[in-house]
Design a protein around this nucleic acid. Structure first.
Lengths: 151, 151
DNA sequence: GCGATATTCTTCAATATTGAACTATTTAGG
DNA sequence: CCTAAATAGTTCAATATTGAAGAATATCGC
């Protein structure tokens, strides 16, 4: 994302916003990653555990939608969590296409122990912005994000 | 990034902003990717070509810093571009540790043809926000991004 | 000038990521 | 009912991504 582009004013303005948005998202998420790394979890692995903790057992399709990743990717991420005994997969009795993923005792214990520190990290990462600024940022980001869908 | 977390108000507020920020960045960049895919370029490959077009020849270290990726990653990304004849690597005479990466004629032609459409896509992606909103988003994102560095 | 240190790049192992092709299952139309 | 279309997962090939270890080169302090 180079910065030295001379084009139409609306292009320059949009580029500028894009670069800053992308760098901010990278920087915050990168900082949060260091906690995951402590527990040898990738970002996506943590995301799966977090989703299961707060939303309960989910099938892989729902997990993929939640994490904005492809189906094939979830097969890999959930598989790696299963290998470590942090989640289990169970074929749904009513619809045999579905694999329901749920936390094991070990997985629940791990994510329960990690989550409060994660929440504190998130709050700390955003503490450079006032509450009003955080809300403005959220509102604009949401508007921007939603507008991309109907593109 | 689940949304159903009940915690301290500042944690909930920060989580909300984080989810929206991350989704927005994903959505915009995902939309931009479709142009790259047309030319069989990955996001990072496009980023390298774009940087070389606007900044001139760069060594891999500088490219890594520009794209916020690791050194090892750049070896791979530049290597794949070189295989396709879009960039060339040349050992720097003055400092033999450096590999200077530059566009080939084919690479320059490709990125030159693609870039105007990319710039138009970026402007279109942000057109749901007013100029003032884009600037506010950029300002807040920049503040947030910079604050993570000294963490 | 030389040895310790730093810098640049490569390599490797592990995980991630996608899109496409494929299997199994379910659902809908006739 | 039975076939056609939709849905959920898996597998595969290609690329990405990181962090750590290692090779080549440069630089700094003495």
């Amino acid at each position: 994302m180079p910065t030295h582009y001379q084009g139409a004013p609306e292009e320059v303005r949009a580029f500028d916003a894009l670069v800053k948005l992308t760098r901010a998202a990278n920087a915050v998420n990168g900082r949060l990653d260091s906690l995951f790394a402590e527990a040898n979890l990738s970002t996506s692995q943590f995301g799966v555990l977090e989703a299961l903790l707060h939303l309960g057992p989910l099938c892989q399709k729902d997990l993929a939608a939640k994490l904005l990743k492809s189906d094939g990717n979830l097969t890999m991420v959930v598989g790696n969590l299963e290998k470590r005994g942090l989640v289990s997969r169970k074929r749904d009795a009513a619809d045999k296409r579905l694999l329901v993923v749920q936390l094991t005792v070990a997985g629940r214990k791990l994510i329960r122990g990690l989550f409060p520190r994660h929440a504190a990290n998130v709050a700390k990462a955003f503490s450079c912005l006032t509450p009003a600024e955080q809300e403005t940022l959220g509102k604009l980001a949401k508007k921007l994000g939603l507008a991309q869908a109907g593109a």
